[in-house]
């Protein structure tokens, strides 16, 4: 009869409240707002396009090769001369990321020679089965206006697509500090050429917001 005890746990949990914490104000509430995120936060990936609409991905598989979690699967193919998908001979024919494996380390972004893959700051997405966790090229590719696709199961808010790419690399070009502040980024659909990320000693509004949250949390902990 041991299983009854198991059921009892389930039954008890049904009537306990949900432990998931909503953002301040609750979902759909008046003040429903996400907490500010650092500029370099690693979220769901996008595949970028050039300003002429060509895909940046050339199917070189460097991202898949460097991925420590082995979550990327890429196959290249020859660009059809009449309808090329990307500049050059090769394009990414299959591109899949398995988000059950991805650890958002951003190594793929660093490895990418064409800035094709970058990460948004979106981490509010979930799935109820394993195959849904595999994002295909159709889902990862940016829209015709260069913005990430807002898929039904993802929680996008206004303005959140701003930081899909731009200066997302952890290091400066060629690893040289002197390159800080220079644009090392080709033009892209929907954004043109982005401004470089601010130097590390410059405070941005987001830095201030994050610090404010941190101070609030510290105060709350002191009280508690």
């Amino acid at each position: 009869m041991g299983y009854l005890r198991g059921f009892a746990v389930t039954a008890k949990k049904i009537f306990e409240g949900v432990t998931t914490k909503q953002y301040e104000g609750g979902k759909g509430g008046k003040t429903d707002q996400k907490a500010p995120k650092p500029e370099r936060l690693h979220g769901r990936h996008v595949l970028n396009k050039y300003e002429d609409g060509m895909e940046k991905c050339i199917g070189c598989e460097l991202c898949a090769g460097v991925c420590p979690a082995n979550c990327i699967y890429v196959r290249g193919a020859e660009n059809p001369p009449s309808d090329p998908k990307s500049p050059g001979e090769r394009f990414g024919y299959v591109y899949e990321i398995n988000y059950l494996r991805c650890i958002h380390c951003d190594m793929c972004v660093e490895a990418c020679p064409t800035e094709a893959i970058t990460e948004t700051k979106l981490f509010e997405f979930s799935f109820s089965n394993r195959s849904d966790a595999i994002y295909t090229k159709d889902e990862l590719l940016v829209d015709d206006d260069g913005r990430p696709q807002q898929l039904p199961w993802e929680d996008w808010r206004d303005g959140e697509d701003q930081h899909t790419s731009g200066w997302m690399r952890a290091t400066a070009p060629s690893g040289k500090a002197s390159a800080q502040g220079t644009v090392a980024w080709s033009g892209e659909l929907g954004y043109g050429v982005r401004a470089p990320e601010a130097a590390q000693n410059v405070r941005t509004p987001i830095d201030a917001a994050i610090e404010a949250v941190a101070v609030d949390t510290a105060k709350a902990e002191e009280k508690g």
């Binding site: 598989e61 898949a64 090769g65 290249g76 193919a77 020859e78 090769r90």
Partner: peptide, 9 residues
């Protein structure tokens, strides 16, 4: 073999 695979995989 063109564009079929990369040597490291």
């Amino acid at each position: 073999y063109r564009f079929k695979a990369r040597p490291w995989d």
